[in-house]
Nucleic acid binder design. Sequence first.
DNA 1: TCGCACATGTAACGTGTTACATGATTCA
DNA 2: TGAATCATGTAACACGTTACATGTGCGA
Lengths: 186, 186
Amino acid sequence: MANKKSVSNPTSLDYAILGLLQGHSLSGYRIRKIFETTALGEYSSSPGTIYPALKRLKKLGLIIQGKKSGDPVNTPNPFAITPEGIEILARWLGKPLESEDISKRLDETMLRFALMEELLSKEQKIEFLTSFISETREYIKILLSDFERESHRMSLHGKLAMENGIAVYKTSLRWGRKALKEIRNT
Amino acid sequence: MANKKSVSNPTSLDYAILGLLQGHSLSGYRIRKIFETTALGEYSSSPGTIYPALKRLKKLGLIIQGKKSGDPVNTPNPFAITPEGIEILARWLGKPLESEDISKRLDETMLRFALMEELLSKEQKIEFLTSFISETREYIKILLSDFERESHRMSLHGKLAMENGIAVYKTSLRWGRKALKEIRNT
DNA sequence: TCGCACATGTAACGTGTTACATGATTCA
DNA sequence: TGAATCATGTAACACGTTACATGTGCGA
């Protein structure tokens, strides 16, 4: 197994930070503001979350602190991603999709997609979307058969809630096919 | 403020457990199996998660342990929900929806819907869905305006990821309207 | 008898949340 | 001058994850 998990892997928050640091340096405060204001807001980020995370990543050598030649002149204590950070991030982005990346962790999976533009090859992106599509199709099948098998003993609200789940996954499936086409045209 | 948060509120896992305990007693093992096998599987549940949660709920007096006259004869140490448990659960289910229940915590919000059948009145359910619809509509507006404002400086992958988010929320909005109709016909 | 499913738990660990704390700079 | 925003951090706490541990009962 090439995968040592001895020391505890980065969390998806860590990866989100590394992803933001592709391209330009950012201060802790800037990163917080991005999490606060943009659609990445799921990673809700009070100081007590962000600063310890940055500390962690720094200690791991995935980011470095200090004026980096380049960007925003007056970012106070900007962090930049290191080559090791890039490598770790790219490895995470390129990991083969498992079924649980769809059934649980769908948000994280979309985050991976959002961050992979620069670091993965076109082939890898296509591979990612192809698996995304087939895993999602597979999972919808499971949901539908669960639904048929159990619906007679489910409450109305239970059934409706499941219908939402199924509809949402179908939407993501359609999205995946469309995204695949667009990426192929690149 | 009627809401004391002094002692730390139940988590959504706690509420999921309380919800499962509506109607019939279940052993810890049974609860684990339900989380493992059904669509509620997001609440991934190893012993190290479930048993401490049950202990907690027991200490709070929201569930009680012991043979309950009724159900499956040889369920080992079944838990049943107490009146206080019901009350806490119902209060949670009936809480007014805030915008963050949609933008973050959408899964939790759907869990609330799934569990409210027995404990809320028809009017409360309609109120829930009505807010769900308007909050979701509102959030989609925000996403769309973010998208228009930022899309020119977003990467292709960023844009595609956002499109998925928007499509998913639109799906849930359609679901909400449909669910509202069905509940009204009750 | 071997192994699997049933059944329940504990201990270490890390991370996110909440709340507190501090200080500089900007702008009205 | 006072308020808001910029900017960074710490401490307590609780929860979930992982890994370990134990024992029963059933069926092949």
